[in-house]
Design a protein around this nucleic acid. Structure first.
Lengths: 207, 207
DNA sequence: AACGCGGCTGAACGATCGTTTAGCATTCTG
DNA sequence: CAGAATGCTAAACGATCGTTCAGCCGCGTT
């Protein structure tokens, strides 16, 4: 009785909220604007979700469920998530980006989940030899996930410089390919920057 | 008469606005809250900056000027910007992240500027042999800058998983080092993911 | 001493915010 | 067919928003 009729006004309100929240932020979006976008009265929004915070929470859970459904149940969210996120609807992208920046509870849980899954995935690769070794596996996993999510959070900037008007998958594919190239072959041919960084870091440590 | 006395109430208001805007977003921050944080009356805020939008613009210009001053005038903002941003004050980080996500005019100009500078920098490296070659230089520059900015925008999430409570430079250094390792030696030892991606991209093209 | 002027404030304006309440239709239940 | 329940709305509530306005205070000038 709940998931079957998902084309109702309640779902329309949620979708409209997702788009408006993503575009203008939660604080910058009024309940009246969401109601107008969904074609209902402002009172109905509160009737279905209790409050604006309740609506926001419903959006969180909806986006998370959509992303999690991309992975096969328990384990590797990684590979499926990559493709799923790149393919995800634009409103959900911006909403997710804003949620990650705001540090909402649900978004933080998702971030942790992705990092943990990625760290296991990289550890497996390290054992099997198709991933280089590192001294700080946690930092690598966190940084890798940050990089994975970066074009998603900064999608407006990326698509503006890369695709012109199009916010379509083709632009995302260009960025993803460029990223994979850097991860596969490396970007720098020698360790001049890495050693330079090590020097700077040591200086900062003594200071 | 303007830059000398930069410890005045006007500067305090701007700094308070930077912090509040970064923490709660522009729409989520009231002029009264900024005034209270700066220890002045709400009317003074409008007296100095004309309107809330004027205050926001002043924050944009201030952050941009602070970042641009990190580079040596014209050319390579890149190398200086990396160190400068990692060392930048936390309030400015979050403000910049939000501005990039909101796609504000000033932040978009900065992003373009960094990408252009980075692309030239990578092209030089490619000529001199310390950067690998690529078929899509623009996409690589955009992706590289996105990666550079990612821990900055997602600093809350990164520091939460990496440093615990500390949002200090040490955490940023761990992430930066992990990133440099991946860029120097590569992450994957073979091209299994790159070739897999190429296959997927072709499938998507025909579909 | 009188004056002008910029930094600054308290009080108030209209608008808009999230939320509540009362009530209208429609449908299901007995 | 009476009646409870559901989906939904119009109208209004108090609070808070950005902004305006009249005027106070301190200081340099004439």
């Amino acid at each position: 009785m709940r998931s079957v009729e998902d084309l109702t006004a309640r779902a329309r309100i949620r979708d409209a909220a997702l788009e408006r929240f993503g575009a203008d932020g939660v604080a910058g979006t009024s309940v009246r604007a969401i109601a107008a976008a969904a074609g209902v009265s402002p009172a109905l929004v509160l009737h279905h979700f209790g409050s604006k915070a309740g609506l926001r929470q419903a959006c969180d859970e909806h986006v998370l469920a959509a992303i999690r459904s991309g992975s096969g149940g328990d384990g590797v969210i990684e590979q499926g998530a990559l493709a799923e996120m790149l393919r995800a609807a634009t409103p959900a992208r911006r909403y997710l980006g804003r949620a990650l920046l705001d540090g909402s509870e649900a978004a933080s849980a998702l971030f942790t989940e992705i990092v943990d899954s990625t760290q296991r995935w990289l550890a497996d690769g390290e054992e099997q030899g198709w991933v280089t070794s590192t001294a700080d596996a946690r930092a690598r996993a966190v940084t890798y996930v940050s990089w994975l999510l970066a074009p998603l959070v900064l999608s407006d900037q990326v698509s503006r410089l890369l695709g012109g008007d199009v916010v379509e998958t083709e632009t995302s594919l260009r960025a993803a390919r460029a990223g994979l190239e850097m991860l596969t072959g490396g970007l720098f041919t020698d360790d001049r920057w890495l050693s330079a960084f090590t020097t700077i870091a040591k200086e900062g440590q003594t200071r």
